[in-house]
């Protein structure tokens, strides 16, 4: 892990009209670090991601960062493009011609376990495969930070568990700074180096837990469960 800072939020608040979504957020994320953000619905998790992706402006405070690439909750693949062309879309936007973009995206899709499905349209892929294409697309945007917005929330339980293990391996081979928003505390502890707990609206950071465990982690592991309980306690302490 390098000591350079990828994301620096200082005293950041964000508001829509009279609704304050985030309040007084101080956050420094080191390059290569994986941060998970958990919090109740309406705690401003999505707003936090939009700030990090440069899609929203703070109403107060300073945001210093290299804008992140987004992997949205719904895969948002273009139904008329093949898996390969969907993944290559950021390269096309960046000015590469079709052949060059495909040549660059092809090997990545193969590494992500999508060999043989390059020419399939999204409708012909499973939910888990579509998320992999979406992940490949985010990687190929070339941005150093990945913002993952509840990437597996729409998947069934078995596919979600598989996808979590797959993401863990994929991030080991394609290391990036990651901000993972999830409502699944266990997912956060399994995948991240650091778990931030947000309070209900307006969202504030009420816990910042370090997860210094080797990958891959097991659900049944005692240390995983201990951190999970600590995160749940921080969440519960701000309920009601």
């Amino acid at each position: 892990m390098s000591d350079s800072i990828a994301i620096a939020l200082a005293g950041v608040s964000a508001a829509y009209g009279s609704t304050v979504a985030l309040e007084d957020i101080d956050l420094r994320v080191f390059a290569g670090q994986r941060v998970a953000v958990v919090g109740p619905s309406g705690a401003g998790k999505t707003t936090l991601l939009e700030l990090i992706c440069g899609l929203a402006e703070p109403s107060a405070g300073e945001v210093g960062l290299a804008p992140a690439a987004l992997m949205p909750q719904r895969d948002l693949l273009l139904p008329w493009l093949s898996a390969l062309d969907n993944a290559a879309l950021p390269l096309r936007v960046g000015g590469l011609d079709r052949a060059a973009a495909r040549a660059k995206a092809g090997p990545l899709l193969q590494r992500l376990g999508l060999e043989g499905f390059e020419r399939a349209r999204p409708a012909a892929l499973s939910g888990g495969m579509r998320q992999r294409v979406s992940f490949a697309r985010a990687l190929l945007s070339g941005r150093p930070v990945l913002a993952l917005d509840e990437p597996f929330a729409a998947l069934d339980a078995i596919t979600r568990a598989e996808s979590q293990r797959w993401l863990d391996r994929a991030l080991a081979s394609e290391p990036r700074t990651v901000v993972l928003v999830t409502h699944d505390v266990e997912e956060a502890v399994l995948l991240a180096d650091r778990v931030l707990v947000l309070s209900p609206r307006p969202g504030r950071i009420v816990a910042d837990l370090e997860v210094a465990l080797a990958h891959p982690r097991e659900t049944g592991d005692a240390q995983v469960q201990a951190i999970r309980k600590a995160a749940l306690a921080a969440l519960g302490g701000h309920r009601g």
């Binding site: 939009e50 992706c53 440069g54 899609l55 804008p67 992140a68 690439a69 987004l70 949205p72 719904r74 948002l76 273009l78 879309l89 950021p90 096309r92 936007v93 960046g94 945007s141 941005r143």
Partner: peptide
Amino acid sequence: DLIKLMRTFGAGRGQTFRY
């Protein structure tokens, strides 16, 4: 959200229109 996603790829108005 698709329009926003295109912005995170650095797409301008014309590219979002085209793609």
